[in-house]
Design a protein around this nucleic acid. Sequence first.
DNA 1: GCCTGATACTTCACCAGCGAAATATCGTCC
DNA 2: GGACGATATTTCGCTGGTGAAGTATCAGGC
Lengths: 172, 172
Amino acid sequence: MSSLKPCVDALYEGVDRVAEHIPGVPKCEVLLIRLLLLNGGALQRDVEDKLKPFDMNDSDFRTLMMLYSSADGTSTPGELCALAEQKPTNMTRITSMLAKRGLITRTHATHDRRQVVLKITADGRRFVRKLLPPMFPELVAKFSCFSDTERKTFERLLRKLALHLDPVAPSP
Amino acid sequence: MSSLKPCVDALYEGVDRVAEHIPGVPKCEVLLIRLLLLNGGALQRDVEDKLKPFDMNDSDFRTLMMLYSSADGTSTPGELCALAEQKPTNMTRITSMLAKRGLITRTHATHDRRQVVLKITADGRRFVRKLLPPMFPELVAKFSCFSDTERKTFERLLRKLALHLDPVAPSP
DNA sequence: GCCTGATACTTCACCAGCGAAATATCGTCC
DNA sequence: GGACGATATTTCGCTGGTGAAGTATCAGGC
């Protein structure tokens, strides 16, 4: 599709040019956030291209994977919202779709009838086991530009950043 | 908003659990892509929250910034599409909106009347100069968990990845 | 000079995701 | 034990972004 090289070049040039006109531009941070979003966009696009033949997008897939990888194959919409960074509205649509396709079931919890219990079905597990392995080679290739050390460093920095970004202290 | 810590924890646990059932899971790469997308989502959400008071989203803002930071304050929809990772359809809508707000102008190129020439206005430049500086402190804070060395390393790795992801060789 | 294919952009119809309001259930305070 | 606020999920209307088709212009062969 679209090539990233010109974006990267334009980014560096653009930041320099803006910094000439406006004082105090935190160049490095601007580069970091823009590069990160650029990579994120490209990676997400690739993932979604891979999933499209199965009529899935990344949100749907992530939701299904949360269930697959949960201890007992069950969860609730609320929990999935928190873990998959989704809004309840969207989770309703996603789980409805997954249920319609027979990949999960939806039942009401007995102890708290407000809650809906989602459970991955045998079909859902089969689907994941069929879908996942073919994605591995391409995924590995995406990061093949890194040495083992770099991959570890990158992971450490990403994890550190995620935990740091967490709550910039809202006042309740 | 939503806390990222549980996501990170669930991610690591989930990957381990999946790897027990399915052979060949490239754990490190899965963690990398998921962490990157997680950070990307959080950062983008923060940026858009900052822009919302000005009735802008990140795409609109990026488009305006491309013009602000271009050598002569002009560009074309096609060029901006390539550099801002947008589709032409959306670029039309964005530039229409920016033009309606008087931040840019749209004229037809004389040498190739198919092309539209976009140019940032004085108002547009003022807008950027007013909007940008207040974003700096928060942006710096986002990456304050990194040492100078870590920031440099992170930038290097992100740039390397972006250039590597570029074209996985389409055959024309 | 006109036909043909390519290029630059726009319009149209659709879908994913969101915020706000609605619904249903729970816990608890009196 | 019924009223009240909190919690879990769903419904509704809207917006941003997309692919496919449409429009206008260009460039090159004949």
